[in-house]
Computed example of a mutant assay.
Amino acid sequence: MKSRSFKAPGKALLCGEYAVLRGAPAMCVALNCRAQVTVSKRTETVSIVSTLGFAEGSWRFKIIDESVAWLDQPPEGVRSLLDAACKKTRLTSCCPAALTIDTLAFYSPRDKKKLGLGSSSATTVALVAALQKQSFDIENIWANSKMVHKAFQNGRGSGIDIATSCFGGLITYTSCDTAPPTKTTWPTGLYYQFFYSGIEADTIAAIDRAAGVSEKSWNMLIEHARDAAIAWGSGNVEEILDAMEQYTVSLRKLDLLYGLNIFGAGHQDLVDLAKTTSLIYKPCGSGGGDIGVALSKTKKDIQDFSQYARMKGFMPLDLEIDNNGVIPTIGEKV
C-alpha cells in the first residue's frame, strides 16, 4: 500500500443544535480548517500513530485478532478513535502502518486550547478516507465515518458534524435521513464572523444534560429550527436573520428553564449587544464555551461588533466557508 493522505474540514453549527437530536433539521457549514490523516505501510512488525495538535506524541500498537493491542499508553481520545476504526474500517489490512493525525488547525495559536470546530469528526472522516479501498467513494466514507464516530462517542450525537466534514459547504441535515444532506449556496449579502470564547466546551456533557429535558419542552425549539431551515433554503437574508433570532430566543428559553448553560462563557453578553444593533449573534453547537457566530446584512456592523467582542475576551477567527468536503492531498487521485 502506498501512502494515502486525506484532509477534511471543520464545521460550525448555525442553528438546529439540540433540536436535531429530536428529528428537526439543522444548518451546518464547513470551515477552512482541516484535519489531515496520512497512512503509510511500515516494514516493521509494529504500527505507530503520531498526532499533531491533540495530545502530541507517538504510540505503538499491533493488530491482534482484529483488535488494537497497545504497546504504549496513548491518550483516551487516540485509543478510542483507533479502537473504533479497527472495528469499522480496513485498518487491520493496512497494518503494520504509520498513521499521522494532524489537527493543529483546530487549536488556538494563543493558548493551544481546542476551538470547538469539530476536530474529532474531521479527523474521523479523513482517517476513514485514508483507510478505504483505492476508489474514492464519498457515500461509503460517509457511512463508515458515521459508524466510527458513533462508536467513538458511545452512541451520542446526531451525525451532522460527520456529514459536514464529508460533503462540505452549507448543508441542511436531518438525523433520520439516509440520503446525503442537501447543500445550499451561502446567501448573497449575508456577512458572518465566527468568534472563539476562550473556553472549551464539553459537548458530551452538554448532550447528557439535555437528555433531562421533557419531550414537550422541545416543541417550540423544533418548530423554530424548521422555520430557520426553510429561511436558509430561501436565500432571503431578511428571512434568515428573523428566523435565526427566533431560534436563538427559543434556545435561550430552554437554556434558562433547564440550566443547560448554553449561553454561558460570555455568549449571552454578545447576544445582548447584538440586540442593540441590526445583527444576530448566537453560540454555535452545544454552547457553554467554544464558538459563536454573528450574522448581518452589512460588513460594517460585523466589524464594529468584532471590536466589542475582543473587549469581552472573544477572539474573531480568520475562517471562511469551505465548499469542499473530504479531499485527497496532492498526489492522490479521486
Rank of each mutant, 00 (worst) to 15 (best):
T164Y: 03
Q134D: 15
K114H: 08
A225P: 05
Q132L: 09
T188L: 13
H149E: 14
I141C: 12
Y196G: 06
L104P: 00
W218T: 09
K146N: 05
I207T: 06
Q193E: 07
R209I: 03
S165Q: 03
S165P: 06
S93D: 13
F152K: 04
A151M: 12
T184C: 05
C94L: 10
A98Y: 12
L99V: 02
F194D: 02
N154S: 14
K150A: 13
K150C: 08
T182W: 01
S175D: 05
L127E: 01
I222R: 10
D137K: 14
W142E: 04
I207S: 07
S214W: 01
T182C: 11
D161S: 08
E215Q: 13
G116A: 05
A179L: 12
K133Y: 04
V213G: 01
K112S: 13
T188S: 13
L115I: 15
K133V: 09
G159K: 02
Q132V: 00
A126P: 07
A206C: 04
K113L: 09
S165H: 03
A105R: 04
K150R: 15
V125H: 07
T123H: 01
E223N: 10
T103I: 00
S135K: 12
A210R: 04
Y192N: 06
D202L: 02
G212R: 07
I141K: 08
E139W: 02
P96I: 09
S93R: 11
L117E: 09
V128I: 09
T172C: 15
L99H: 01
L117Y: 00
S217I: 05
I160W: 00
T203N: 03
S145P: 08
A211D: 15
I204E: 12
H149W: 07
K216A: 14
S197Q: 03
S217Y: 10
R110S: 13
E139I: 07
V213Q: 07
D137R: 13
S120T: 13
D102P: 03
P187S: 08
C176M: 10
I222G: 06
K133R: 12
S120A: 11
C176R: 13
L99W: 11
D111G: 08
V148P: 06
L104A: 14
T182L: 14
G169R: 06
D137I: 11
I207K: 05
I141E: 01
E215F: 07
G169N: 08
A151F: 09
N140R: 14
A98W: 11
W142F: 09
Y192R: 10
G212D: 06
A151T: 11
A211H: 10
E223S: 14
D202E: 12
I160R: 06
G116N: 06
G118R: 05
T188C: 12
M147Q: 15
G155M: 02
T178I: 14
G212N: 14
C166W: 02
V213W: 08
P180S: 03
Y173L: 01
W186P: 12
T124P: 06
S108K: 04
Y173P: 03
G198N: 01
